[in-house]
Design a protein around this nucleic acid. Structure first.
Length: 463
RNA sequence: GGUCGGAUGGCCGAGAGGCGAGGCUCAGGACUGCAAAUCCUGCUACACGGGUUCAAAUCCCGUUCCGACCUCCA
């Protein structure tokens, strides 16, 4: 079965055909670094990380570009508001995003270009657009793309130019058409600026992505991704710029759906509660990732703390299976890709279907464990690890080992002492004493399980 | 006004003409000194009204409700 992906441009699921056999170039619209990341932002990161991991697991050599837009109106506004330089604002939140990506085991991109590092490429792109008659500089320092000159526009969102609500702001008088959009903005006093043939200014919102995608992936590349809300205007305008310049641009457009609360799209005005840095105080990063990744990337994910906690419990069940099995096997099998899992992932990344299979595998693994069928158990563990690896949720991944709660030898030794006391009490059938020990240990957040191989312990609150 | 999604059991969440997705919760059972963990069993739904069909959660028509985008969004 070959990989098929949903393409927003065609509104269909179709076979993925790379431009160059065995290679994939992906451009993901990353953060505009003007606030800390909330789980909606990071869902996008997780969804496309799963895509990337699956492509890599399928044998593709993946070049993954995720940009940082480090100059825009909101960043400048925030700089004034916080009384710090705009570049300090950008760096502060870029770090917050980097921390969040790391906490959720989102792989670092192959390259992470910043908009301000690609002014040269933007100016070159504008020169091409002006030369081809698709852009103009009316003399005020701005540069606009003239949308009426395009042979096609708004193909991604399937809209008609005349159906758009009129923009109607007064400062647009220099535009030839009110729907022309700014490639470049003249700088106001006190704002950062870079010199161009049309005056000092700074990038408009969309130009950076066209310039950087071309710089790192070429004129035509395989996959362009981002959130649903980027379809219009951001991606339409990227297409407009790049195609007007004569580039083929992206072959496949993929868009992740939102995390919603109370049925509504999460907005930046929600406050701090759904920021990644807050949520990973409640659940571990691996559990938050599991939750965000468990819904299909094109489905809205209705956030609730109850659902998050429930999801984390389900994940711990799988984690506990791995923990138990590896203890019994005495070794850690490497992950393998089961064919059913591959089929699910090849079907437009059908993670929910993959998770249903994973549940079955864990169940059969537990049965193998009970039957002491180590051969079947090893296969099950390998399949579980293979699946979790692609999802970025393998607890044995070194990215998460630090958060693994039961790896401390000293604690293990101490608890073993207590467990020896309890075993002695059980042996003489002094259950009052043995239960007292178990209760005292439980009060510390450590659960005791008696197994045919002897007692084992696990932290329940060690996050 | 234009464009595009959605409504599935107590909860989460897939599926997209025909064999009960899966998980969580709950109830019962096995196992256990008692538990825990695990396994087994049970609960089995598709917003509403029409239509097509041998067969509709799925296709068509209509209705209701919810949401998104329309030039600062993941």
């Amino acid at each position: 079965m070959v990989l098929s992906l949903y393409n927003t441009a065609t509104r269909t699921v179709s076979e993925f055909r790379p431009i160059t056999a065995g290679k994939v170039g992906i451009y993901l619209c990353g953060a505009t670094v003007q606030a800390p990341p909330h789980i909606g932002h990071i869902r996008s990161g997780v969804n496309f990380d799963i895509l990337r991991r699956w492509l890599a697991a399928s044998g593709f050599d993946v070049t993954f570009i995720r940009n940082v837009t480090d100059i825009d109106d909101k960043i400048l506004h925030k700089a004034v508001h916080e009384s710090i330089p705009w570049w300090a604002v950008a760096m502060k939140y870029e770090r917050a995003f980097t921390d969040a990506y790391k906490a959720l085991n989102v792989l670092p991109p192959t390259y992470e270009p910043r908009a301000t590092g690609h002014i040269t490429q933007m100016v070159e792109l504008m020169e091409i657009l002006i030369e081809k008659g698709h852009a103009y500089a009316p003399g005020n320092g701005d540069v606009y793309l003239e949308v009426r000159t395009l042979s096609s526009y708004l193909t991604l969102s399937n809209q008609k130019l005349d159906d758009l609500l009129p923009a109607g702001d007064a400062e647009d008088r220099l535009k030839r058409d009110p729907r022309d959009f700014a490639l470049w903005k003249a700088s106001k006093p006190g704002e950062p600026s870079w010199p161009t043939p049309w005056g000092d200014g700074r990038p408009g919102w969309h130009l950076e992505c066209s310039a950087m995608a071309q710089a790192y992936l070429g004129e035509t590349f395989d996959i362009h991704g981002g959130g649903l809300d980027l379809i219009f205007p951001h991606h339409e305008n990227e297409i407009a710029q790049s195609e007007a310049a004569g580039y083929g641009f992206a072959n496949v457009w993929m868009h992740n759906a939102w995390v919603t609360t109370a049925g509504e799209k999460m907005s930046k005005s929600l406050g701090n509660s759904l920021q990644v840095q807050e949520l990973i105080k409640k659940v571990r990063g691996i559990e938050l990732r599991w939750y965000l990744g468990s819904a299909h990337y094109r489905s809205m994910l209705e956030f609730s703390f109850e659902a998050l906690e429930e999801s984390a419990v389900a994940f711990r069940r799988i984690e506990a299976f791995l923990d138990r099995s590896i203890g019994i096997l005495g070794k850690t099998p490497e992950g393998i890709i089961a064919s059913g899992f591959a089929d699910a992932m090849n079907d437009d990344l059908a993670v929910p279907a993959a998770l249903a299979l994973l549940s079955e595998t864990v169940k059969s693994g537990n049965n193998a464990l009970a039957a002491n069928d180590l051969v079947s158990l090893e296969v099950a563990v390998a399949e579980v690890r293979g699946t979790l690896g692609v999802l970025g949720c393998d607890p044995l991944d070194e990215a998460f080992l630090g958060s693994h709660p039961s790896n401390t030898d000293a604690i293990d030794g101490l608890i073993s002492l207590a467990l020896q006391q309890r075993e002695a009490a059980r042996a003489r059938k002094d259950f009052a004493a043995s239960d007292a020990i178990r209760d005292q240990i439980a009060a510390l957040g450590i659960v005791i399980e008696d197994t045919p191989q002897g007692p084992r312990w696990q932290m329940t609150s060690g996050r």
